[in-house]
Nucleic acid binder design. Sequence first.
DNA 1: CTTGTCTGCCCC
DNA 2: ATTCTGC
DNA 3: GCAGAATGGGCAGACAAG
Length: 476
Amino acid sequence: MTGRRREDVIDQLSRVGDAGAAVEELLSQKSQTSFFTVELTLADIMAGLVEISGMEGGRSQREKIRVIQRLLSSASPLEGHYITAILLEDFRIGVGDGNLRDAIAQAFTVDPKLVEYANQVRNDMGEVSVLALSGEEALRSVRLVPFHPVRMMLARQGTISGVLGEGVRVAVEYKYDGARFQFHKQNGTCRMYSRRLEEVTSAMPDVVALLDGALPDDVIVDGEVIAVQDGRPMPFQMVLRRFRRKHNVAQAADAITMVPNLFDILYYNQEMLIDRPFIERREILTKVSSRYVTPQLVSGKEEEIEDYYHDALDAGHEGVMLKLLDSRYTPGVRGKDWVKIKPEADTLDLVVTGAEWGEGKRAQVFGSFLLSVRSNGRLVPISRVATGFSDEQLNWLFQTLQDDIIRKDGKMVYFEPRLVFEIGYSEIQKSPNYEGGYALRFPRFIEVREDKDIKEANTAEDVEERYILAHRPVNN
DNA sequence: CTTGTCTGCCCC
DNA sequence: ATTCTGC
DNA sequence: GCAGAATGGGCAGACAAG
């Protein structure tokens, strides 16, 4: 569209770190040498977007590219910027749900709290905006309806002692390493939704059948499915092989057994329950469901909760959740009413063998680093890391590593090994993507071990040993 | 038909 | 997921 | 305290290319 070479465009993109801004610049350079443009209308853009959304199958990518090329070539630089932003769903204009909520509240002179409440229940700002037009009463009277999934309530990280105060009692439940789901049933029809509210019913026929059998009609419940074998939870990777599958579902269901665990109920028998206290919802859930309700301890004793937590870890779960007994169900909110307790991260000392240029606010520095373990006198990659750095540390690393670069390949650079990072992680997992066969789950940067030479970094044998140790059967 | 690469209102 | 940052 | 931003491993799917 601008007659530029592919490399120029990539170069531009990595320089500004924002595709919209990059397109704007490229188009403005082009307009100096080009003479005509056809005026682009909103209808043209809409038509293009509709056309693209309907394309699939063979050669569809090429066709999509053709349509985008047509739009951009008749766009002004600013238009190009925002067409690109629309296509990537990436506006970077600092307007999130909060600002939108306040704008709707002001436009229709209603309480922002009610706008938020209605959006929590209906999960559709467009619909909420229409309700706001009719006034506060309409917002107040919104109700949950089966097959309109609501956003899930989220938890924050914490510690047991941090949650327990004077005389505070909490509900303690296992934290499962699986996939969150919401299950709806009405008039004999069942549907299951993922955390991002995608429908996964057809991928989970076995789980849906179990829940159908265990639950009455007209309910919405919240839970987590895990993969199990011989009564023990399987690695998260097994869950991934099942959860959003479209093809060979029956075969996969045969190979990997999935079990639901229910921990909340949002709606039952025409009644919305999200504003009830958690203990009440729990009581209703245990009455309503004949099976699959997650075990629960209610306690205010730190020692007792610690024991329960260690039982959870011994059983192969991630940790526990602590839930305040009187908390409402707040869709989409990561509030302090639910707190997850997980083990502190283990750490490894790893050699920095490469890095990749960043994007956005990291466009001028390395955005992630390649990490390796020692193995028979060689260095073997085991993971990357991209979080845990302050901006200052990223700048320093970018500068200090310049002299170590021995090879470049696209946005990747490779170093003469010198630095050792201490890296925190939650788990070592089998990896098909790294040469050594293992990778770290949730890696994060702790610090540069300036006191350590690369010869003192951890080895592939260390990693394997830790993997085996973590997966050995527990004997009691 | 196989293989490689990229994407996902993706899962964590 | 985790983490840092600006408000 | 909150929301936003930038990034991790890994899976199935969808396409493109051979």
